[in-house]
């Protein structure tokens, strides 16, 4: 029914046009507009496909929408793995440090401290010598004397 109304409406419109422009002139115009070079439609698809291929070569389209889920999954996996490895390594280092400190005998620690004490004092003396220029002679002599007394 709806289609029938449409057909009637179309026929009426066509009639109006043909009354105004004559049917033969319109059909001649139609034929002229539909003239194409011989074999044009047979080769048209090849022409379009060649254009598509050359477009692909020029701008390879990376469709993020296709790869996005995989990229997201990979990124999350890498993040989790890195965090896990980092935590594991940190725990191991602390354990090693704890074990080593417990294993060292007290005498060794004492001898290490006394050996390094003299080095620290030598360093302290050289520091005083370095800043000596900014101290007055009396203060510098007093400081040196104090250090020498302590060393003896």
């Amino acid at each position: 029914m709806h289609s029938n109304t449409r057909d009637i409406e179309l026929e009426l419109d066509k009639q109006k046009i043909e009354e105004l422009l004559t049917k033969s002139a319109l059909s001649h115009l139609c034929a002229k507009q539909e003239q194409v070079p011989h074999g044009y439609f047979e080769t048209f698809d090849t022409q379009v496909l060649n254009k598509i291929k050359s477009q692909k070569r020029q701008n390879p389209i990376i469709r993020l929408s296709t790869y996005m889920p995989y990229l997201m999954a990979a990124a999350i996996t890498i993040l989790i793995a890195t965090t896990f490895i980092f935590i594991q390594t940190d725990n191991k280092t602390n354990t090693i440090a704890k074990v080593n400190m417990q294993d060292i005998p007290t005498e060794e620690i004492d001898s290490y401290v006394s050996e390094n004490e003299s080095i620290a004092e030598i360093d302290w003396q050289s520091e005083i010598n370095l800043i000596g220029g900014s101290l007055d002679k009396e203060t510098g002599d007093n400081l040196l004397q104090d250090t020498n007394t302590k060393q003896n």
């Binding site: 507009q33 539909e34 003239q35 194409v36 070079p37 439609f41 048209f44 698809d45 379009v48």
Partner: peptide, 19 residues
């Protein structure tokens, strides 16, 4: 493309005239 190429072409040609 093969199904619709002619109608698409004619629609364009009627407006621009030149092949």
């Amino acid at each position: 493309l093969k199904r619709h190429q002619q109608k698409v072409y004619y629609q364009i040609k009627r407006m621009v005239n030149e092949h």
